[in-house]
Amino acid sequence: MTRYAALISYDGSAFHGFQRQRGLPTVQEALEDALSLLNKGMVRVTGAGRTDRGVHALGQVVSFDMFWPHGPDALRKALEANLPSSIGVFEVVPVDEGFDARKSALWRKYAYFIWKGDCRLPHLDEHLWRNGKPWDMQKARAFLSMIKGHHDFSAFCRKADLPDNAWRTIIDAKLENIVHMIKVTIIGRSFLTNMVRIIIGTMDEVAAGRRSLPEVELLLKSGSREEAGPTVPANALFLWEVKYDPSPWTKGGYPLCWDWI
Rank of each mutant, 00 (worst) to 15 (best):
V179G: 01
S9K: 07
S224T: 15
Y254T: 10
L256A: 13
I199T: 08
M181W: 11
R20A: 15
G229W: 09
F156V: 08
Y244C: 13
F64W: 03
V62Q: 02
S9E: 15
I8V: 14
G47R: 08
I147P: 01
M203A: 15
L24S: 06
V184C: 11
D118Y: 04
G201L: 06
D161W: 12
R76Q: 03
P230F: 09
S36G: 14
P230V: 14
K109P: 00
P214H: 06
H70E: 07
Y244E: 02
L7K: 07
D11P: 01
R108G: 12
K174W: 15
P214M: 05
F153G: 07
F113P: 07
D100G: 03
V206F: 10
S212D: 04
F191S: 03
L35M: 02
V92S: 00
E227L: 11
L31Y: 05
V93S: 08
N235M: 11
Y112E: 03
L38C: 01
D172H: 07
T231L: 01
I200V: 14
H150C: 12
V242W: 06
K77W: 00
A140N: 13
G149D: 11
W107C: 09
K40W: 03
I114S: 11
E215T: 08
E217R: 12
C119K: 02
K221A: 15
R53Y: 04
Y244S: 09
Y4T: 02
S222P: 00
I200N: 09
K148W: 00
R20E: 12
V62D: 05
A140R: 04
I114Y: 13
V242A: 10
L106P: 00
G23N: 08
F191T: 10
S190C: 11
P25N: 04
Y112Q: 07
V184W: 10
L75Q: 01
I178Y: 03
A101S: 06
R189L: 02
E29I: 03
K183C: 11
Q28T: 07
P255K: 10
R102C: 10
N165T: 12
P84D: 02
R108I: 11
R76F: 03
L37F: 06
W68M: 04
